[in-house]
Design a protein around this nucleic acid. Structure first.
Lengths: 168, 168
DNA sequence: GTCTATATTGTGATAGAC
DNA sequence: GTCTATCACAATATAGAC
């Protein structure tokens, strides 16, 4: 594993462990047992690190959603479940991927489309329905991650209610 | 207007003008033409400032949504339109209100419920449907604010598609 | 209620030696 | 490719004088 890959690995561990504020050049260097300035021999700046993390997230999502639609009679529900699971398992990376404009020019081509493809296929190419479903899923997930629902809210039922209406 | 009210006012102006990073004690003090340490004679700390901003946001939303359901035959659509308008007009305050757990213990009682009441009434008390609608609206709005939809996406149609399914 | 002075902590990033 | 030394900057907050 190259030094650069190690750096991205450590950055991701720090991101999920300590949140975005925990991803500092010093913290990354500490875990690699080198000094912070040495990192700049391998990456140009912190932005490059963020782009690499986002790219990994999309690749993982594409894989998860593709797996979800194999062997199911309800692809939309299966993708929704997979979407929620991935976000809850990778909350800070999920936030990084959804809270700011995508650095589309710096990202490997096709990543965004590959992650979206399973859903678009599940709704037979109806992009408006795909966007409505994505918005619903993103809203549910981001409010859950932000702990913004009332503490006693039954989220499973809210998911089922929304999906039943939107999936058709 | 008390000094404290002036401080909250200025904080809100800075929040929407420069984003959350622009709301510093120094910047607030500069606009009031005093020194930053003087602010602490009027507020305990920055957290108190954030709570005051969030409280204002909820009060404004409650007013906007209540106005939206008067004189309409489609209350859910009217609230959705109002929700989107308010968020687009106050993007950074909206983010402050939705990206973190509510400081419910520090907020005036009833504010959250008052803002949610028009929607709950519009769906005849069906809380699962209300949550699904809220999630959809929040997802649409937050992705729009984050510029996460593809540049050519037709958001009006996505809104209409989602609301048609969810409003029933 | 305002001021000056300061503590404390933290950040990304560069220069230049080895 | 790693190091030491350092720059440049910014943040919240407190002490104590007036």
């Amino acid at each position: 594993m190259s030094r650069k890959e190690q750096i991205v690995d450590v950055a991701r561990q720090l991101l999920e462990a300590d949140g975005p504020g925990g991803v500092t050049m010093r913290a990354i260097a500490d875990r690699l047992e080198i000094r912070a300035p040495s990192l700049y021999k391998h990456i140009a700046d912190k932005h490059e690190l963020e782009v690499a993390l986002i790219a990994r997230g999309f690749a993982e999502q594409a894989e998860a959603f593709t797996a979800a639609i194999s062997n199911t009679t309800e692809p939309v529900a299966a993708i929704a479940h997979s979407y929620r699971s991935w976000a809850l398992a990778n909350p800070h990376l999920y936030a990084l991927m959804t809270s700011n404009p995508l650095p589309r020019n710096d990202l490997p081509a096709g990543l965004e489309i590959a992650a979206a493809a399973p859903l678009v296929e599940a709704v037979h190419g109806n992009t408006d329905r795909a966007r409505a479903l994505w918005a619903f899923a993103h809203g549910m997930v981001s409010l859950e991650l932000a702990k913004r629902f009332p503490p006693d809210a039954d989220l499973d039922t809210a998911w089922a209610t929304g999906l039943r209406s939107l999936a058709s």
